[in-house]
Simulated scan of single mutants.
Amino acid sequence: MKVTKLTISTQTPKGVRLQWKPLNEVKPVKLSSSLTMGKFVSEKELTNRNNNSNSKFVILP
């Protein structure tokens, strides 16, 4: 005989938890160079990030 555990869990929907909005309510954002500009990472900082990271690959913005 299989024992089943009856639990009632009410979890809020993912969209509510992440504060998502429907696409028709979202206003478009005009991209500018200041919004899309990345940060300069020096060679010393890059090697420091690689040494502290367990992964072999680092994704830089």
Rank of each mutant, 00 (worst) to 15 (best):
K2F: 13
V3R: 07
T4F: 02
T4W: 10
K5W: 03
K5A: 10
K5E: 03
L6Y: 08
L6A: 06
L6P: 00
T7L: 08
I8Q: 10
I8D: 03
I8W: 05
I8M: 10
S9W: 05
S9A: 09
S9M: 07
T10N: 11
T10P: 04
Q11T: 13
Q11M: 11
Q11D: 14
T12E: 13
T12Q: 11
T12S: 13
K14Q: 14
K14H: 08
K14E: 14
K14A: 14
K14R: 15
G15E: 12
G15R: 03
G15M: 03
V16Y: 13
V16L: 07
R17C: 01
R17F: 04
L18D: 15
L18W: 03
L18T: 07
L18P: 00
Q19T: 08
W20M: 08
P22D: 07
L23Q: 10
E25T: 10
E25V: 00
E25S: 09
E25N: 03
V26C: 00
V26R: 15
K27E: 06
K27M: 07
K27S: 08
K27W: 00
P28D: 03
V29K: 00
K30W: 04
L31D: 04
L31R: 02
L31Y: 02
S32H: 01
S32G: 05
S32M: 02
S33N: 07
S34K: 12
S34G: 00
S34T: 15
S34A: 08
L35R: 14
T36H: 06
T36R: 08
T36Q: 04
M37R: 13
G38R: 10
K39L: 03
K39T: 14
F40C: 04
F40R: 13
V41E: 02
V41I: 14
E43G: 04
E43M: 10
K44Q: 11
K44M: 08
E45D: 15
T47R: 13
T47Y: 06
N48G: 10
R49Y: 14
N50M: 15
N50V: 13
N51S: 13
N52D: 14
N52V: 03
S53G: 00
N54W: 11
N54C: 02
S55I: 08
K56R: 05
K56Y: 05
K56A: 12
K56F: 02
K56D: 07
F57R: 12
F57A: 12
F57K: 13
V58Q: 06
I59C: 05
L60H: 12
P61S: 04
P61Y: 06
